[in-house]
Write a protein that binds this DNA or RNA. Structure first.
Lengths: 245, 245
DNA sequence: ATTGTCACTTTGTCATGACATTCGCAGGTT
DNA sequence: AACCTGCGAATGTCATGACAAAGTGACAAT
């Protein structure tokens, strides 16, 4: 019921107050300071406690709700969810995801060339069929074990890159430093089985299951700047999501 | 740039204003009234036009951003995204998803029994291992072609059901009428290959790829009320998501 | 014992006002 | 011609205030 949370807010920081509060609460929930089923104080009192207005407090709670950490009920209050929460999918690309988990990863560029856009790629990137695009195939390994076979297409007017820069920083980082700022991605997850070539590269047997992911990334102008078709070893990767009403 | 949108708001309706506006705009975008790349009016003027306050207008825009329909840039404005947008994943269960698309579907209950909870199920439903749960296996077909093999577990204290009610309305509808109100679900999507039994039921060959989905649904109290392990034919089903910064 | 009513609490919705931050552009300076 | 500066425009953040709707529990009436 009551919580002796110690949250210090920095009003001069460029990071918004609602985000500071939400992050602090998220951490408190994840590290057990606020155990599952805990009933939080009401919004008004919480806002008062942190010297915030209620809209700001609500904005923080909204974020927690969207991330699947708490549940709100009108007339009742806000509770920490009962089931353990997995970390959610983000628009950060696999590279960041793994890096933050402290794993040692390596990316090998298998191929980098300019090709005419296929009908599928042209449609996803809003180009004309046959227009030239950069095509890169990479193999990503974690702890020296292959994990993902990634195929991506980028229009030349978005950015140009080389094998070296690609292997070093990950595609998204590279594009970001080239001035592209991602805002959004549409993503489709499915399944397939490995053919002989894919199996050899990924270190599995032909016919083993693979998770497929097709992603189209959009920049802040709403234009498609990159699309990709990725294959993951099904025994070592899956996609988590939280759905909220 | 300018838009001659005809949106009529019903201030006496129980559905919130921001939702009315967001739905109207979403439809305008999907049906082409607001084509891709269109620059919307600024928030202030839009709010004025609909006789709304700016926070309410912003709340509507927020929803469009989360659904991946528009992109906002500070100092610039709001644009409809350039790439075609697929409809997003919702907490509605497959039954509703397909029903709204007008397909003819049939659900066959293959098995319905009470079993002791396995370690995995117990953890997902926050029960003790060995505690009794209802276990149901269903085969869902669309247009007489099998699509999904679904295995679900529900604690007895949540709801009781029979083969008839299950086949009729879908699991989520059934639980809803039993007084359960879903708020949230955690979901993991992966891949596997069909074994002989699964292949026979789904009408594919042994070794064909399947999309796997493990979902745990929570009610408004944040307690787990249902979990499931589903298998979908990879050639006929996949999961779409929109990721937003 | 059941039902209905009422008060209270808490979240949901909406309005108004203010200032900060960022982007794009025009115009002037070097 | 290139660079810098300042201005306007648009979204981002935050505060205050108010009422609505829904759940909970106590109490009274049937």
């Amino acid at each position: 019921m009551s919580d002796q949370l110690e949250i210090t807010l920095d009003r001069s920081s460029p990071v918004p107050l609602y985000h500071q509060v939400a992050s602090a609460l998220e951490q408190a929930i994840r590290d057990g300071t606020l155990p599952p089923e805990t009933k939080l104080e009401n919004e008004i009192d919480l806002a008062k406690r942190f010297n915030l207005s209620r809209p700001t407090m609500r904005q923080a709670m909204d974020q927690l709700v969207r991330d699947g950490l708490v549940v709100r009920r009108r007339g009742v209050g806000t509770q920490v969810v009962g089931a353990p929460v997995r970390r959610n999918l983000r628009l950060s690309s696999l590279y960041d995801d793994l890096q933050t988990e402290g794993a040692v990863q390596r990316t090998e560029v298998l191929s980098l060339e300019r090709v005419p856009a296929s009908a599928d790629v042209a449609e996803r990137l809003q180009l004309r069929v046959g227009e030239e695009v950069q095509h890169v195939v990479r193999l990503r390994s974690v702890d020296e074990r292959p994990l993902a076979l990634m195929e991506n297409w980028v229009p030349p007017h978005v950015a140009e890159f080389s094998r070296e820069t690609l292997a070093a920083g990950g595609l998204y980082n590279l594009l970001r430093t080239a001035g592209v700022d991602f805002r959004m991605a549409h993503q489709r997850v499915g399944a397939d089985v490995a053919d002989a070539r894919q199996a050899k590269l990924l270190g599995v047997e032909t016919g083993d299951p693979l998770v497929t992911m097709d992603r189209t990334a959009l920049d802040s102008g709403g234009r498609a700047v990159e699309c990709g078709h990725h294959l993951y070893r099904a025994d070592r990767y899956s996609f988590d999501t939280t759905l909220v009403n």
